[in-house]
């Protein structure tokens, strides 16, 4: 279908290009990409494999959006094709939080919480519950692995985007 007419059309005229560049300038100014987003992406994408389900976050109804960092306690639900995770994050002190979680359908998966300082793993119980008692505040990511006896061989089943705890 790439007719002579069609093949010439994709190119913007020089005038359109200048206007497009000015539009980009305007939106860069009024709605900039969050300064830390690329860094958070680099952290979230640094995984040893790629064959996993993505757990999409959504805030519980009633909570204001855009304030995922900082409150004393909050609940976040993540959903994917294969499993759903709900976490409740409560403040311990200025440096740490406690994470109570529940995954469904229940399974004795390994739940790993990656942070800038390393990762901690717990095994969900047969009801799907798990607790990460002391988690440093800051950038983190939940990674769900197979519930193998040897955690080093447990491949990744699902991951969340990075979040600020």
């Amino acid at each position: 279908m790439n007719t002579a007419e069609g093949s010439s059309s994709p190119h913007l005229t020089p005038e359109d290009q200048v206007l497009a560049a000015e539009i980009a300038d305007v939106y860069r100014m009024i709605d900039p990409v969050p300064a830390t987003l690329v860094e958070r992406l680099r952290f979230a994408l640094a995984l040893e494999s790629a064959d996993f389900a993505v757990l999409r976050p959504f805030e519980e109804a009633g909570l204001p959006s855009g304030v995922r960092g900082g409150e004393d306690s909050r609940t976040i639900t993540f959903d994917s094709e294969i499993l759903t995770i709900m976490i409740s994050v409560s403040a311990r002190d200025d440096h740490a939080v406690r994470v109570d979680g529940w995954l469904a359908p229940p399974g004795e998966h390994l739940v790993e919480l990656r942070t800038g300082g390393g990762a901690q793993q717990v095994r969900a119980d047969d009801q799907g519950r798990f607790v990460l008692d002391v988690v440093p505040r800051g950038l983190s990511q939940l990674v769900v692995r197979q519930g193998l006896d040897d955690p080093a061989r447990a491949t990744i089943l699902a991951v969340t985007p990075s979040l600020i705890l």
């Binding site: 969050p34 987003l37 958070r40 992406l41 979230a44 994408l45 995984l47 790629a50 064959d51 996993f52 993505v54 999409r56 976050p57 959006s65 855009g66 304030v67 995922r68 991951v159 985007p161 990075s162």
Partner: peptide, 16 residues
């Protein structure tokens, strides 16, 4: 906030 999540989710899906 929602847009940040969408951008992250998009890149994570891309890995596969």
């Amino acid at each position: 906030q929602a847009a940040e999540d969408v951008v992250q989710t998009t890149w994570l899906i891309l890995l596969r």
